[in-house]
Amino acid sequence: MELLVRVGAVMAAFLVLPLVIGQAEHKVMAHMQGRVGPMYAGAFHGWAQLVADGVKFVQKEDITPREADRTVFRLAPIVALFPYLVVILTLPLGPDLVAQSLDIGLFLVLAVLGIGVVAVLMSAWASANKYSLLGGVRGAAQLLGYELPLVLAAASVAMAAGTLSLPGIVEAWRPWWLIWQAPAALVFFIAGLAEIRRPPFDMPIADSELVFGYMTEYTGLRFAFFLLAEYVGIVVIAGLTTVLFLGGWHGPFADQLGWLWTLLKVAALSFVIIWFRVTYPRLREDQLQRLCWLILVPVSLAQLVLTVAVKSLL
């Protein structure tokens, strides 16, 4: 019974949070660009726009290109979505509020996020479209590269906390870590943005050159799956940054309102992710790799040294 409640809660979060994030993206982007965004669906400020979009996607014809590798093509969106579901399962909301507590949760999260790149390659290759393939190869290079600073930054905070369990890390977190772990937090957030291929790291789907990258040939529900994966990805990266670096449920009245603090921090970070999309132009492929290998990796390595130094002094 309890298991059912947990799985139900995760599924609900998995379905509701992306809609909230998506609607926030519509509205935040619109207001930053001096327009109003969707206003009609559902009457009040177009709140039902994404529900209407969902209905539209379901009605659309499910097209598979003639030359495509059908099986792989159809599997790819599911493979893209699945890792994020697993990650949501392990994110702690409050002191005892986590769907599945594992003592090496952080490791599980990093391992599972790495599967996303398989989905990118699958969809890119199986589409039998050169724009898709180019996008997929760009995506694979980006995901493989940025996984390194992501893992190193996470390793720093795991070393500081002395545990790989996500609730354990939040438990060990102290406010001064905001300064101590600041470089790692920045590296993690930026590398996380690149992992979910959000602007300014959307080179793999660059719509002005590659149509829509590895998603070019997808329609209807399968395309909606990719979109859903993108929005859940925002929740996951914001959630992980919150849990690892911003102290998760810590805040005034954490005993009663812990879950609210977590959600607030996730919402604030999601806002920043959307803000980035409106603010920065897309990074060119060479700039993207340069940022990863020449800035993020050295910074995260230096952070590891700093973490060890401070930890052994204490």
Binding site: L110, A111, V117, L144
Partner: peptide, 18 residues
């Protein structure tokens, strides 16, 4: 098990496919 996923599935095979 998770190292297997992280290293082999997430990196080695992907490099191969790439």
């Amino acid at each position: 098990a998770w190292v297997q996923i992280l290293v082999y599935v997430g990196a080695v095979v992907v490099l191969l496919l790439f």
